[in-house]
Amino acid sequence: MRSRFPYICTNKRYLYNRLKAVPTIMFDNFLVFLANHPRLVPEPLLRVIFLFAADVCWLFSLGGVSQLERNLHHVLVARDGAVTRKDVRKASHRGMRSYFTYFAEAMTVGGQSNERLLARARAIGPGLPICRRLVHDEPGSLPLAISHQGNWDYEGFLAANVLAPPTVTAERLANKALLDTFIKIRKRLDITVLLTGQPNLIEKLTKVLDEPHGLVALLADRDLSRHGEFVKAFGSTIRVARGPAALAFDTGKPLFVVNMFREQLHGEARRKAGVRYGYVVDISAPVDIDRFRDLPREEAIHAISQAWVDVWAHGILAYPEDWHMLQPIFIDDLDFSRLKDVPDEVMSELERIKQVQ
């Protein structure tokens, strides 16, 4: 067999890409090992390790920190007006610590009792009693729009115990072992995972909504497909998934928006949880789908998407450090060469941004 060594030595880009992937592969394998041995490392020690890793990544701008800061800059400017580089760096530091805390929690969730897990999250919001009535008394199933916030595992487990077992979607990961591990964790928490990109995904989710006593919780604040929905948020344009709006419009179900953020625990609540910080799951009042019922389907999906994003954005503005968005989402960061059906007004906005830059 002909050796590839000369090619590797002369192609610096190839070598750089291979070396750059090594830390990610090692980290993924480390996560798989920990998740499969949740009691091997004491949780307090594991949290310290992950917080140290978060500090290192933040200090050297590794692992998506630069993109996180670009995203947070939009949020902070929308909330506070002009912000400094120091403001953004402080926010990204808190964000990375929040994000890596989630990893520590995900790795140890299999070793926690149900009582302890329920003590670590609580549900609030005007939509909570409405969801309870619709799911338990009707009984029916509901779509929820969720985002990259807080801890999905705790959120799903709480939903399964307070409302109904959720069905969620997840992206296919390059590391199959890591993907299988996360699916196994969520199955233990009574969370059903459907992978994006599979045939007839919307039909499968619609079928779930046709059954009683269920939830379809769609991670929707970012879209990887070629046909996402462009909406306004934080004084700019972002691209979100069409799923929540499409399901709500097609099924006639009310759509609820969920924000999740951390809170400090005290006294008995802290003792039961076994940690200093828990989570608040804030369920919005239902988005009024009926006011869009007379619109053509595509216009309605856009209008409903904008409506739920308006609700969701308030939660991000209040707790930006718990928004773990380390990928491109704003118009000035997207790769438009791979997108389809981009509206003319979005392309015009992009041209204006390029001219300013």
Rank of each mutant, 00 (worst) to 15 (best):
R2V: 14
R4S: 09
F5N: 00
P6C: 11
Y7M: 01
I8K: 06
I8A: 10
K12R: 13
Y14Q: 06
Y14N: 00
R18Y: 03
K20S: 03
K20W: 00
I25L: 13
M26Y: 09
F27D: 00
N29R: 14
L31S: 02
F33A: 12
F33V: 12
H37G: 01
H37P: 04
R39V: 04
V41T: 02
E43I: 10
P44M: 05
L46Q: 12
R47L: 12
F52L: 13
C57K: 01
W58H: 15
G64F: 05
V65G: 02
V65C: 13
L68S: 04
E69M: 14
R70L: 10
H73D: 05
L76R: 07
V77L: 07
R79T: 11
D80Y: 06
V83E: 04
R85H: 04
D87I: 09
S92E: 03
R97T: 05
S98A: 14
Y102D: 05
A104Q: 04
A104E: 07
E105M: 09
G111W: 11
Q112V: 04
R120L: 14
R122S: 12
R122A: 09
A123V: 15
A123D: 02
A123M: 15
I124L: 11
I124P: 01
R133N: 11
R133H: 12
D137H: 10
E138F: 05
G140W: 02
L142I: 15
S147I: 02
G150W: 00
G150D: 01
W152N: 04
D153H: 13
G156P: 03
F157D: 09
L158Q: 11
V162G: 07
A164D: 08
L173W: 04
A174P: 00
A174F: 09
N175L: 11
N175R: 12
I185T: 12
R188Y: 10
L189T: 14
L189P: 09
D190P: 00
V193D: 12
L195I: 11
T196R: 15
G197V: 10
P199L: 02
E203N: 06
K207H: 14
D210I: 00
H213I: 02
H213L: 00
G214I: 08
A220S: 15
D221K: 05
D221N: 11
L224G: 15
H227R: 13
F230M: 02
K232P: 00
F234L: 11
G235T: 08
T237D: 02
R239M: 15
G243W: 08
T251L: 15
G252F: 12
K253Q: 13
L255T: 02
F256P: 13
V257R: 03
R262T: 15
K272T: 01
R276P: 05
R276H: 07
Y277F: 12
V281D: 04
D282F: 02
D282P: 05
I283D: 06
A285T: 10
D290W: 01
R291N: 03
R293S: 09
E298H: 11
A303L: 01
I304G: 05
Q306K: 00
A307D: 10
A307N: 00
W308F: 15
V311G: 02
A313I: 04
A313H: 03
I316Y: 03
P320M: 07
E321H: 10
L326Y: 06
L326S: 05
I329H: 01
I331M: 13
L334F: 11
S337H: 14
S337M: 03
D341S: 13
E349W: 00
L350N: 00
E351Q: 10
R352S: 05
I353E: 07
K354R: 13
Q355W: 00
